[in-house]
Every structure is written in C-alpha cells, then in structure tokens.
Amino acid sequence: MTVLAIAFIFSFLFYLVLTAGSGKVLVWSIEEICFGIIFSILTAILVKKLWLSVGAKPDLRILNPKRWAFFLIYAIGPLFFEITKANFDVACRVITGKIRPGIVKISPGMKTDFGTMMVANSITLTPRTLAVDVDDKGNIYVHWIFVKIKEPRVEDICSSFPKWIKRIVE
C-alpha cells in the first residue's frame, strides 16, 4: 500500500510539473489534472507489480527531506566542482594527447546497492574516470585516463563522494 501511495504521489507531481501553465485552476487545466490522476494510478499499479515481481522491500529512509537537501547540496557543490575540474583536465588531454590509461580497483565501502550505484554514477559522470564493472563486495573497477598510482585510495578517484553519499542514502 505504501509503495502504491508513494508511486502515485510522485508520478502525479511529475505530471503536474510537466503540464504546468496549461490552464486556469492555479496554473493547470481541469482536463490535465483528471488525466494526471488516471495515469498516475495506472503508473502506481505498474510500479507495485514491478516491486512484487522483484521481491524487494521499499527503503523509506530516502523520503526524509534532509537527505534530499543533502543531495541538492552535493549535486550543486562538490559534484559539479569535480566535473568542471575534470572537464578542463580532459580538454587538455584531448589537445595534447597525453594519456596513460588503465583499469584500477577501488572499494568505497558502501553498505547498500543503491549507495554503490550512486558512487559509480558519480564516478562515471566525472570525466577521466569511468566505472566499468562492479563485483559483489561493492568494489568498483574504474577506467582511469591518467593512472598516477596503480593501487589508488578512494580519495584519489572520487575526492569526497562516498562521504556525501553515505550522508544521503545510508
């Protein structure tokens, strides 16, 4: 039931954001709101079926607004800064052609799969590092465009990402 309600609320909010500015009831038209409710109920039923088929339990800690605030700060602050820095680095390497590629292994030590996924996505979003594979223990195999150290610590690849992601999802 909780999954149904959460899926309904989020898909309805998403529909409202997409159709903002269509009419006179606040900023939405009545037709759009009716269709939004119908399609949100359909989406919620589909999501519920997906959850049941996977057999996963919903992790409600992510609904905490403090975690969302942390996520926004993380996305705008450290993540965007690292992306900018690395982009200029890769831009220089494109022009000079100075590369020393290799695949290294790091263990960020996240407890949940979702945390590992967020670390891997952050690593991949930053140029010069690219997550190639993940094993069962949560170790990430990273393709690094300029290998400085052959057995790097976590901070060498992704400066402070795991610390932030621990605050967000764990």
């Binding site: 590369i99 020393r100 590629p101 290799g102 695949i103 290294v104 292994k105 891997a120 996505n121 952050s122 991949t124 979003l125 690219l130 997550a131 190639v132 594979d133 195999y141 393709h143 290998v147 052959k150």
Partner: peptide, 25 residues
C-alpha cells in the same frame, strides 16, 4: 552515466582490452 557504463561494460565483456593500459585489475 548509466549509458556510458553500459557501453564500457559491454565492450569489456566482448573482449576489447584497453589499449596501452598500464594496469588492468
């Protein structure tokens, strides 16, 4: 990032080794 990761993983699984790699864990 999901797409880039999928391409890289598929490339490695189909046997394309990184060219001139210093280290390959």
């Amino acid at each position: 990032p999901t797409g880039a990761h999928a391409i890289a993983r598929a490339a490695y699984r189909s046997g394309i080794m990184p060219k001139g790699a210093v280290v390959d864990m």
